[in-house]
Amino acid sequence: MPPAVDHIRSVSNAYLDRHPHERDALSTLFNALAAPADPTNRKTYPAHVTCSAVVIDDNRRVLHVVHRATGKLLAPGGHMEPDDRDLRAAAVRELHEEAGISDDMVAPLTGYEDVPLDIDVHPIGANPLKGEPAHYHVDFRWAFLLYPGTHAVILEKEEVDDYEWRAFADLASPTVGAKLSLLPW
């Protein structure tokens, strides 16, 4: 059973306690949570929840994968699945599926065990081949530390073409980079 609306709302409110200035930017999320449709279902429009794993190695670099469908370099992540028990678990599942990094190879970033590092709302173009209209992904971005000595990345070849590690200043998401740069490393 996918995460309940109450869980998503609770995590979102905890996030906004840290970042109250982002409330207006998350109006799409709260509209989706107020609607009758399941916000975790990939066929819920105009917006649905996705989850990503921001994995940081011992050199303070973040893992990015090249998604085959878009060619974009992003943190491992994607749509919710019916068996995801919560938002963070969905991010860990996607990390394992796309990069071969399992939950025993990472630990949540201290202070971010129950709150995402970032929540981003971004537009997704229409995909007539999948019967999908233009819509929004509300991406809950969870931060994890890769245990030292763990460097093997095994790509899921159906969805991912390549990977690279990037410094905080060079991340695909400037907001994630800015939030990581502010932490006391």
Rank of each mutant, 00 (worst) to 15 (best):
M1D: 15
M1P: 15
M1L: 10
M1V: 14
P3T: 01
V5S: 04
D6N: 13
D6T: 14
I8K: 00
R9Q: 04
S12R: 02
S12M: 09
N13T: 04
A14G: 11
A14P: 14
D17Q: 14
H19T: 13
H19G: 10
E22T: 02
R23T: 15
A25G: 07
S27G: 05
S27H: 00
T28N: 10
T28R: 09
F30N: 05
F30M: 01
A35I: 04
P36R: 14
P39W: 11
P39Q: 10
P39G: 07
P39Y: 05
T40F: 10
R42L: 14
K43P: 09
T44E: 09
P46G: 10
P46H: 09
A47L: 07
S52C: 13
A53S: 09
A53E: 03
V54Y: 07
V54S: 09
V54N: 04
V55W: 00
V55D: 00
D57F: 00
D58C: 10
N59H: 14
R61Q: 11
V62H: 04
V62K: 00
H64K: 01
H64W: 02
H67T: 05
H67W: 11
H67I: 11
A69S: 12
A75V: 12
A75Y: 13
G78R: 00
G78V: 04
H79I: 02
H79D: 11
H79F: 01
H79W: 00
M80F: 09
P82L: 02
D84T: 06
R85V: 15
L87R: 08
L87K: 06
A89W: 10
A90D: 02
R93N: 12
R93W: 06
E94Q: 04
L95H: 07
H96Q: 06
H96V: 01
E97T: 11
E97W: 05
E97A: 12
E98M: 08
E98Y: 01
G100L: 04
G100Y: 01
I101C: 06
I101R: 04
S102A: 15
M105I: 06
M105C: 08
P108A: 00
T110S: 05
Y112W: 11
E113W: 10
P116N: 03
P116I: 00
L117C: 03
L117F: 03
D120C: 15
D120I: 02
I124A: 05
G125D: 07
A126Y: 08
L129G: 11
K130Q: 14
E132S: 12
A134E: 08
A134D: 08
A134T: 12
A134V: 02
H137Q: 13
V138Q: 02
F140I: 03
F140Y: 13
F140R: 00
R141K: 13
A143T: 02
Y147D: 14
T150R: 12
H151G: 15
H151S: 14
A152H: 11
V153G: 07
V153F: 02
I154T: 15
E156W: 03
K157S: 15
E158T: 09
V160S: 07
Y163Q: 03
E164C: 12
W165C: 11
R166G: 09
R166T: 09
A167N: 12
F168H: 06
A169G: 12
A169C: 11
D170E: 13
P174D: 08
G177W: 05
G177F: 02
K179H: 12
L180S: 08
S181R: 04
L182Q: 12
L183S: 01
